[in-house]
């Protein structure tokens, strides 16, 4: 497992990349308007097998003192995506910086779908079929 290492006066501090991913994922989903993270096909299968992945839908690239985060998200219907995106970027950056001390250079967002109110647990909203009234 790759990790960030820092040497302090009393010893060294190592933070696993997965930990940064989990922090980013949790910081993202607590923003109102985020329906969840999208872990792709592999993530979905792993979840079906009972493996709860808290860093699902998060890709982190950690350097010595800085990191770049990519988030793959599902947004709730009815929210303004630019506003939610702004809040996610700020929240993720602030949380990672406060908790790990790493400088967050970029928080890139990939909005993969919209969750409509009638969809209870669908991970990703597909294009609705032509509807009849």
């Amino acid at each position: 497992m790759s990790e960030t290492e820092r040497r302090g006066e009393l010893g060294e501090l190592k933070i696993a990349n997965d930990v940064v991913g989990i922090i980013a994922g949790l910081a993202a989903v607590e923003v109102p308007g985020v329906a969840g993270m999208s872990g792709g096909i592999a993530g979905g299968i792993a979840e079906m097998l009972g493996h709860r992945n808290l860093s699902k839908g998060v890709k982190v690239d950690v350097g010595e003192h800085e990191c770049v985060v990519d988030l793959f998200l599902i947004i709730e219907y009815g929210y303004s995506i630019p506003e939610v995106a702004q809040q996610i970027q700020e929240n993720v950056k602030r949380t990672i910086e406060v908790m790990t001390g790493l400088d967050v250079m970029e928080v890139n967002l990939h909005v993969l779908g919209v969750q409509f109110p009638q969809e209870k647990k669908g991970e990703e909203a597909q294009i609705p079929a032509p509807r009849g009234k």
Binding site: V68, V69, I75, Y77, I81, P82, A85, Q89, E90, K93, V104, E106, V107, N108, L109, H110, V111, L112, G113, V114, F116, A125, Q126, I127, P128, P130, R131, G132, K133
Partner: peptide, 27 residues
């Protein structure tokens, strides 16, 4: 703070939802 990418399928589903209020449309 970084780029925002929105999948076109996501916007397409929003467009379909947005047209729901317009009277006269069936599909």
């Amino acid at each position: 703070l970084g780029e925002v990418k929105i999948s076109t399928s996501c916007v397409e589903s929003l467009i379909v939802e947005a047209t729901e209020q317009i009277p006269g449309l069936a599909q």
